[in-house]
Amino acid sequence: MVDNIRVTSEKVEGLYRKLDRDARNAGYNLNPDTAFTRELVEGLLVNEKRYGYWACPCRVAEGDIEKDRDIVCPCDYRDPDLAEFGSCFCALYVDDEIKNGNKKARSIPERRPDRETREHASKEKEEAITRPQEAGSFKPRLPVWRCTVCGYLAAREEPPLVCPICKAKKDRFERFL
């Protein structure tokens, strides 16, 4: 593995600004500790050079997109971690409490299942999708939440903290399916 991949501070600044803008537009926040956040953005750029995609800077990537897809930033675990701990695993993304300085970001437990469990789950998912369904027995694999303000639908364990479309808060979501 090649070490010493360097990225320029201009590149870091550029991506930092883009991620910050995108986060705000979708109802998320970057960590307000800008030095900390810039280090993570640098890590994303290093991983872009190494692997060709933004593998999570705080996890070990395999270098195979099929195996790393769940940890391409923003990872599959960001939103459940924001809901439970107030930040993602890296603390690149944080909730309002941390953003407003009422709580400190900290190192949180890893939510990503171990390799064996991941491989098993991906097989199960494939089987569930291809299994024929009886008429009238439709049951979604995940709960579907509806934003009562704008109608946005999201199939996930929990509604987002903020509706990415209209920015209504989590409590404005109702269970739809």
Binding site: M1, L40, C58, V60
Partner: peptide, 29 residues
């Protein structure tokens, strides 16, 4: 991990404490 900021904070804490230690950056292997 070399790109992980929590890992860097941990290294820095060990250095601030003046503790001798050994480390490996797993992502560079």
């Amino acid at each position: 991990i070399s790109t992980c900021v929590w890992c860097r904070r941990t290294k820095k804490l060990l250095e601030d404490l003046g503790v001798g230690y050994s480390y490996v950056f797993v992502d560079l292997l």
